[in-house]
């Protein structure tokens, strides 16, 4: 590893920290690999975006990632909170997506029945 690579690594780390400590309270990450897509992730995302929009939640940002290795429980949504807490929701359908918006993103309550993992940073 040379100096340039180290610099790049540092910049990348800074960017990621900036994202985590950004202005938004929640970051919603959709898994959009082959398995997610086949399980309906795109339409779940559309439903969720529409719901977020409808409720005027502006403390939320959205990101999309690829395959995350949990193919049998897709569609998967991970919600990262500004403090570093993460909640993963699995096998999310359109109704679940709306519930996650109204409960988790709007009221700050984890939807326990749908959450599969809750890990500290």
């Amino acid at each position: 590893m040379n100096l340039d690579e180290l610099k790049k690594l540092k910049e990348k780390a800074q960017r990621q920290v900036a994202l985590r400590e950004g202005h938004k309270k929640y970051r919603v990450v959709f898994s959009m690999g082959t398995s997610g897509i086949a399980a309906g992730a795109r339409d779940v995302m559309t439903t969720m975006l529409d719901e977020i929009d409808k409720r005027g939640l502006d403390d939320v940002e959205v990101a999309i990632t690829g395959e995350i290795g949990l193919v049998d429980v897709e569609p998967i949504i991970r919600i990262e909170e500004a403090g570093g807490e993460q909640v993963t929701y699995a096998k999310v359908n359109a109704a679940d997506a709306r519930k996650i918006v109204t409960e988790h993103l709007e009221k700050g309550k984890v939807v326990e029945g749908l959450a599969v993992g809750k890990a500290k940073k």
Binding site: T34, S35, G66, E67, G69, V71
Partner: peptide
């Protein structure tokens, strides 16, 4: 098989589909 290597598993079925 996926072209991905490393810790994260991937599917590798997209093109075949």
């Amino acid at each position: 098989g996926s072209t991905k290597t490393g810790r994260r598993r991937a599917v590798g079925l997209g093109l075949a589909f």
